[in-house]
Design a protein around this nucleic acid. Structure first.
Length: 575
DNA sequence: GATTCTGAAA
DNA sequence: TTCCCTTCAGAATC
């Protein structure tokens, strides 16, 4: 029998760091709880590092957790107890959630049953400019235009505001999901998509503060369907914002195919076309475009051109700062954020929470995989040594230049050849960061390479050949991060990547996650130069996928000595 | 009038 | 911290 202190899987530190033992029998139970109340930071081996932050606690509170439940669960899991400091922090932060509420009375009012808390919150500089009149003991009238500003400002200071002031209905729109598409396929939301719509906009009344917030779904799980479901539920004129033009046409196509909207109801506001229709799809880019350096934002009027009842923010983790600013002024309009990850590289999770809303629904990648909605990937990191010429070059190079030398390690070509030979029948994408390297690889392997400078028409020709199986492998640059219409492959090999972008890693894996017609598993390889900074960068990039429950195995590529007979690379699996 | 090219911004 | 891709707008070219 285990000693009693070994019977618990978690070590909790007073700064909010939580260490979870992977091999512990209660690991799965603990992981499911930490998913709701903390975020995973590192997963290097036996001990997984989680972190509790104010935003993770408030998201937990928004989805119904009480401080008492969080404390009780952590206590039950913590091997050496829950540090008093951390417990106090959890109680204090979560205790504040719901204590400050924005409500609509005759006017917009910030209300609290805790006069001390309200006084504290109002004491911060700038807050008095938001007030419409003098504060009473338990409430204070707020200027309607300051609704977003005050939420954002106070959350940054540790005071979350629950917004129950409701939303304008927007112009009504007669729209529903079709029963079947024109080519006869049945239109229906999957269970998790319907649950997400329900969590965002409950059918009958429901919680007054829902109707704004974020739905988290993995790539390929059909986020547009959640958007269409919300549209059909709320039946109002809707503005949809997306990160790029490909995604704009995808939204338009899906809306026409699966809802009762007709062509004249749906508009594109991007590039050449500036249509404003009952449902309008625009890019973030056009909204943030400015004529001159000091000029305003000429396209912002789109936000008020019509009486939108709903704004959908696709890929909300990419929302640019200026659109955040604009969104602060639009708090009376319902907002739906869609994303595969709430994590932002710029650390503005608090802005998403305050200005779009709390997390309303979150489907774990792993559970969708079990149900067959996304493919099951095998992820391998392959360590490739530097050759005799490159190693001294790397050592001598200034720190800044090293990443590129490691990324372009010529031995990666041999490793690539070997990986390709493992899956000769599979459609394979080779994804890289440097155009020089991609051209080198494509030249040696006799493959076409697609980069940003290739015209769209030519890309499509290559995609067609790839989809028809005339081409087994295709090298692609960073276009892979953006082009939504990239064909389906079942093997992806990453030969170089940018400095630790978790976002990018998820996108690239997403390229192969669409379920295969034959139900086949898929493979994701990442080539990393051994003994270089790339190892650390790769670790950082992998973080998000590890958080979703994927694991990477580490192999070492052993180049064949030119004279000796070829031997297979010894495999050394690590976690 | 439509297209391709170019530069700036992020 | 670089490299890369995308987008917008206006100019050049057919």
């Amino acid at each position: 029998m285990m000693p009693s202190n070994q019977s618990r899987p978690l070590v909790a530190q007073s700064d909010g760091t939580l260490l979870l033992s992977e091999s512990h029998p209660r690991y799965a139970e603990a992981r499911d709880i930490l998913r709701d109340v903390a975020e995973l930071r590192k997963r290097p081996g036996e001990w997984h590092t989680y972190r509790i932050t104010p935003v993770t606690l408030w998201n937990a509170a928004a989805s119904g957790w009480t401080a008492e439940e969080v404390v009780a669960n952590l206590r039950d899991l913590a091997r050496y107890g829950l540090p008093a400091l951390l417990e106090a922090e959890i109680r204090s932060l979560m205790g504040r959630y719901g204590k400050l509420r924005l409500v609509r009375e005759d006017e917009l009012v910030l209300r609290s049953e805790d006069p001390g808390l309200l006084r504290e919150a109002l004491s911060y500089p700038g807050v008095d400019a938001c007030l419409l009149g003098p504060p009473a003991c338990d409430s204070v009238p707020i200027r309607p235009e300051a609704r977003g500003w005050i939420k954002r400002e106070l959350i940054a200071r540790g005071y979350p505001i629950v917004d129950e002031a409701g939303y304008r209905a927007g112009e009504a729109l007669d729209v529903e999901l079709r029963r079947t598409t024109e080519d006869g396929r049945t239109v229906a939301l999957r269970d998790y998509q319907a649950e997400a719509v329900e969590a965002f906009a409950p059918a009958a009344g429901g919680r007054r503060e829902s109707g704004s917030g974020v739905v988290v779904l993995p790539c390929g799980a059909g986020k547009t369907w959640v958007g269409m479901g919300a549209l059909a539920r709320l039946r109002c004129e809707t503005l949809i914002l997306t990160p790029n033009a490909t995604s704009v046409s995808q939204w338009i196509r899906e809306l026409l195919r699966n809802t009762t909207l007709r062509e004249r109801d749906v508009g594109v506001y991007a590039g050449e076309r500036k249509e404003v229709r009952p449902v309008t799809v625009a890019t973030y880019q056009i909204l943030t475009h400015r004529q001159t350096k000091d000029g305003g934002f000429p396209h912002w009027k789109l936000f008020v051109d019509r009486n939108w009842g709903l704004i959908i923010y696709d890929e909300v983790h990419l929302l640019p700062a200026p659109v955040f600013r604009m969104t602060a002024d639009l708090q009376a309009t319902r907002r739906l954020g869609l994303t595969a990850t709430l994590v932002r590289e710029d650390g503005r999770e608090g802005d998403v929470f305050a200005l779009i809303g709390p997390k309303r629904y979150d489907a774990a990648w792993k559970s969708l995989e079990r149900e067959g909605w996304i493919a099951k990937p095998t992820c391998r990191e392959v360590r490739v040594p530097l050759d005799e010429e490159t190693a001294p070059l790397y050592q001598a190079a200034p720190k800044r230049a090293r990443h590129r030398i490691a990324g372009e390690n010529p031995l990666k070509l041999d490793a690539l050849r070997r990986l390709l030979s493992l899956h000769p029948e599979r459609q394979t994408l080779i994804i890289g960061q440097y155009l020089d390297q991609l051209r080198f690889v494509s030249d040696r392997l006799g493959l076409p390479v697609i980069t940003g400078s290739m015209p769209q028409s030519e890309r499509e020709r290559l995609f067609d050949r790839f989809n028809r199986g005339e081409l087994n492998a295709l090298a692609v640059s960073k276009v892979a991060n953006f082009a939504v219409d990239l064909p389906d492959a079942s093997v992806a090999i990453q030969i170089s990547g940018s400095y630790g972008s978790r976002q990018e890693e998820a996108q690239r894996l997403g390229r192969i996650l669409r379920p295969k017609s034959n139900g086949a598993d898929v493979y994701f390889y990442s080539l990393v130069s051994e003994g270089t900074d790339e190892v650390e960068f790769a670790r950082k990039r992998q973080q998000f996928l590890l958080e979703q429950g994927y694991r990477y195995e580490v192999d070492r590529f052993v180049p064949e000595a030119p004279s000796s007979s070829p031997t297979p690379a010894p495999k050394e699996a690590r976690t």
